[in-house]
């Protein structure tokens, strides 16, 4: 009868041993391979450090000019450009310039990493049913597992610093671009693919000339999502030693500094809005072929 009220769980001693053996074997793994893995990620670290230095150490007027210039080139919208310039000026005036630039650096590198890794995987799973079957649940795990859980092994492996932060952001922010690349490719109409086949296009030609261009709006939505999600990871990443806007927020939480938290939080929001509007406007420009000028 007792078994109905208390779950017949594993013997506590055995459970303890199981956990201990998992821990110790991972520790063993990280001792023997930690250094190799660190070397593997070295280029990533160097890129991040270089970009961060560039953004922080360049004279601020030039940085703002370049950033708003980029905003104009991609969005071709005065409103979006003006908003970006104003936001950066206010951020600077309120003393958050270095932190904002550090955050911008890690977001840029993280997004680039997600794109470089995510788009090929997205293409792969739209061509292989088996790959999709394996990878989809992995993506589910990546998106839903609490970030603290994978921070533990990452920190055990690589210690505290920029690279573990980058990996943590990457794990959380890569799934949308994979999913949306796959969705974009799969929603290319069969008629068009059949036409390409009938003209003797090879698989690669079909991918480059038809599938990817037509999937571009969807891929762009994925990039946008990825940027938003990496911004939302900024505070958590700061817990393992990533510099930037997350750090003051963390300090504000532990000391109950309302103004500090609010300002840095709003700076993150401003970055998010800038990225979002610019990416959306750029995505719209890519779809200009959809505009109809019927009735001539």
């Amino acid at each position: 009868m007792d078994n109905l009220y208390t779950f017949p769980s594993m013997d506590p001693q055995a459970l303890r041993d199981l956990k201990k053996s998992i821990d110790s074997s991972f520790l063993e793994f990280s001792r023997s391979y930690g250094e190799a893995i660190e070397i593997f990620f070295e280029p990533l670290l160097l890129t991040l450090v270089w970009l961060e230095k560039l953004l922080i150490e360049s004279p601020w007027p030039i940085t703002i000019l370049v950033l708003t210039g980029l905003a104009w080139i991609t969005s071709r919208s005065w409103l979006a450009t003006l908003f970006s310039a104003t936001a950066f000026l206010i951020i600077g005036y309120l003393g958050m310039w270095p932190d904002t630039m550090a955050t911008l650096a890690i977001i840029s590198v993280a997004t680039l990493l997600c794109i470089v890794f995510g788009i090929p995987v997205g293409i792969w799973i739209s061509h292989s049913q088996r790959a999709k079957f394996v990878i989809t649940p992995i993506l589910d795990v990546m998106q839903t597992i609490p970030s603290f859980v994978y921070l533990i092994p990452v920190v055990m492996l690589l210690g505290i610093g920029k690279v573990p932060g980058l990996i943590a952001v990457g794990i959380y922010a890569t799934p949308p671009i994979i999913r949306l690349t796959n969705l974009g490719i799969e929603s290319v109409s069969n008629d068009v693919l059949e036409a390409a086949d009938a003209m003797g296009a090879s698989r690669l030609q079909k991918l480059l000339d038809v599938q990817l261009p037509l999937a571009l709006p969807s891929i762009f939505a994925g990039v946008n999502q990825t940027i938003m999600m990496s911004l939302s990871m900024v505070v958590i990443a700061s817990m393992i030693g990533v510099k930037g806007l997350g750090l003051p927020v963390l300090r504000a939480i532990s000391n109950q500094y309302l103004a500090l938290g609010l300002m840095n939080g709003l700076a993150i929001v401003a970055l998010a809005i800038i990225f979002d509007r610019i990416a959306q406007l750029y995505g719209k420009r890519l779809q200009s072929y959809k505009e109809t000028i019927q009735n001539e």
């Binding site: 008629d191 068009v192 000339d209 072929y289 959809k290």
Partner: peptide
């Protein structure tokens, strides 16, 4: 051999 389709199947982009 080339082919023409009922729903045109042009490349929209």
């Amino acid at each position: 051999i080339s082919m023409v389709f009922q729903n045109f199947a042009l490349f929209p982009h």
